[in-house]
Amino acid sequence: MCGTCGCGQSDDQITIRKPGEEVHHEHNHDYNHEHEHEHDDDKHSHHHHHHYKHDHDHTEMNHSHDHDKEHHDHKHNHDHDHHHEHDHSHEHDHSHSHEVKVEQDIMQKNDKLAERNRGYFEAKEIFSLNLVSSPGSGKTSLLEHTIKELKEEMKFFVIEGDQQTMNDANRINATGAPVVQINTWNGCHLDAEMINKAVKKLEVAEKSVLIIENVGNLVCPSLFDLGESKRVVVISVTEGDDKPIKYPNMFMSSNLCIINKTDLLPYVDFNVEKAKEYATRVNHHLEFIELSVKTGEGMDKWYEWLRKNK
């Protein structure tokens, strides 16, 4: 989200770049710009800096109604496309207020776009993964090792999501896999629209594996379907083993839970069985793989999972 005016993630803010490309982050807070343009619903479906135009001045506050109410019994179908002069009088008294049924899912726009992505992936036989976790659980290291190990077997494409920097994309780039970095700036998650754009830029090949590394955050990304085939949540043993019940939505919406950094188990209080039990309570369909990217222990199970699900 835009921290300055609280607007959602607008297209202008998000940058999608390949390693080596220039930054062109434009983020204008032009509060005072003129609103002469017409608002077309289709056109301003996403960007909200053009704050709504009120071209009539008769808000209750600045419009004095010292006229007689008897004059105002007439019904007027005023069309708000025009500026109407207020030398005639019309008293509203909220008498025109009425209920309109809406019945629309709030996440509908994202969900529809996610379904489009999903259809595209299916048609091109792209196996897509949405990798989610807290910051620092080892997602990027897991990816680096996976690509190095399996690149002869599978064609990998990677979308990296971070608030800022190209660091992760540069790390993936070093493995030889095509990658784009999405920088969400103040945003805390990736959404289906960003993936749609990133996939076009990345030119993902048919029959490939697309790995989307989401912004490190166990809360917000859970709500945003990206159109992925499978969602993989990564936790590391340096975190609390109660993470699954502290952040249940993420575990509820995932297909696989990777427990990383198992080489550190002798030094931490993390109870693997307890973590699994908590996670199973939240989502009894969840599969688990325990591994250590550092020592390589358990990585074969992960590779097997990829081969099986691909």
């Binding site: 993630q9 309109v100 809406v102 726009k109 994202n110 809360v219």
Partner: peptide, 28 residues
């Protein structure tokens, strides 16, 4: 704070319906 994104989605839906119904403003 994904609620900001959620709120933005709500605004879009509400604005859309309000305009289709020629609303001057949304009360609730």
């Amino acid at each position: 704070m994904h609620e900001l994104s959620v709120a933005q989605n709500i605004i879009e839906i509400v604005t859309d319906f309000a305009k289709k119904n020629h609303a001057k403003r949304v009360m609730e």
